[in-house]
Structure formats: C-alpha cells, structure tokens
C-alpha cells in the first residue's frame, strides 16, 4: 500500500513512499530521520510534535502524511538555518526556557506560529476586545502556548522567553 509523497522539510526536498497510515510525524522521524519533531503522546494532547506546515503550526502526529503531499514543513531545526538561531531560540537559551529539552522544538515551533497569528491580529479566548488589536501580554502568551505541555515545568521561563522574543521582533 505504498503511496508516493513529496515534502520539503527544512528546505530539503524529499520524495518518499509511505503507508497510507503513516502520520506526518512518523514520516519525518521514521522515514526521513528528521528527529527534531518529537513524539510525546501521538494523539494531539501534548504539542511535542508541533511543526510549521506552510507556515502554520500543526500537531504532526494527527495528520496523515498523504494529506500534506507537496507541503513545506519547518521544524525547530529549520528555524536555525546554517545553525543561525532565530530570535525565539536565542530567547529560549537566554532564559533557560527548558530543562530536559524534549518538548522544546515543539514549543519553539508553536511560539513561531503563535507570533505570526498574533501579528495577523488573531484573538485568543483571553482577549477582552475581540475586535481590538492584539497585545501579547503574559496572560495572552500563556493561553496561546497552552497547547504545548512541559512536564519539567519551564512555563514561567517559556513565557519570559516568548515575551522577550516578541518585543525584539516587533
């Protein structure tokens, strides 16, 4: 039951053959050896597998790979082309926004996607004025980053890092 699939991952083009059951996450990890996206729960309940697909943050564990034939996938590794860290990654390092590091690539991708959503004016459930401009307060960051669990408990540092990165990139 092989199906041909074309993906661009962190700027590299790949053509591969996958089982119809293969998720985007397993295609990355088990077929392409791209290990930056992590498997924490495999059911969309932890966010460790978060990658950017055509610029939007998604749980790659709940997507069939074939659905995303032709897509451009960016992992946390791809956010640091040639090893040049993104503003977010530098902020994560500066503020010790992780401990074991397993949820970290997902946190970084999620934060990148989240900042883009906020820049587009998308509200969150804690936004008082749904029609007003988005101010990325700490409360807003906490809510918007709640799809990424961190069992080491680095949340307060993650919020600081994302907040600083948001200020810097403004």
């Amino acid at each position: 039951m092989g199906h041909s699939l074309h993906l661009t991952v962190d700027g590299q083009e790949h053509t591969l053959v996958v089982d119809s059951r293969t998720t985007l996450l397993d295609a990355l990890r088990d077929r392409l050896g791209v290990m930056s996206a992590k498997k924490g729960c495999d059911h969309g309940q932890c966010g460790a597998c978060t990658v950017l697909v055509d610029g939007r943050r998604l749980n790659s564990c709940l997507a069939l790979a074939l659905t995303h034939d032709g897509a451009e996938v960016t992992t946390a590794d791809g956010l640091a082309p040639e090893g040049e860290f993104s503003t977010l990654q530098r902020a994560f390092l500066a503020h010790d926004a992780f401990q074991c590091g397993y949820c970290t690539p997902g946190q970084v991708c999620s934060a990148a996607g989240m900042l883009a959503e906020a820049a587009d004016g998308a509200p969150s459930v804690v936004t008082d004025d749904l029609e007003g401009p988005v101010e990325l307060s700490e409360e807003e960051i906490r809510e918007r980053m709640s799809g990424n669990l961190c069992r080491c408990g680095a949340y307060v540092n993650i919020v600081t890092a994302v907040s600083r990165a948001a200020e810097e990139s403004r």
Binding site: G47, R57, L58, L62, A63, S110, G113, M145, G147
Partner: peptide, 12 residues
C-alpha cells in the same frame, strides 16, 4: 471556537 483545544489543533 477559541475555547476549544489548542492553537495547533484549531489550525487543523
């Protein structure tokens, strides 16, 4: 809509 799931899940 914004009360449901997470940012990533709502994108899908």
């Amino acid at each position: 809509l914004l009360s449901g799931a997470s940012g990533q899940l709502r994108n899908a």
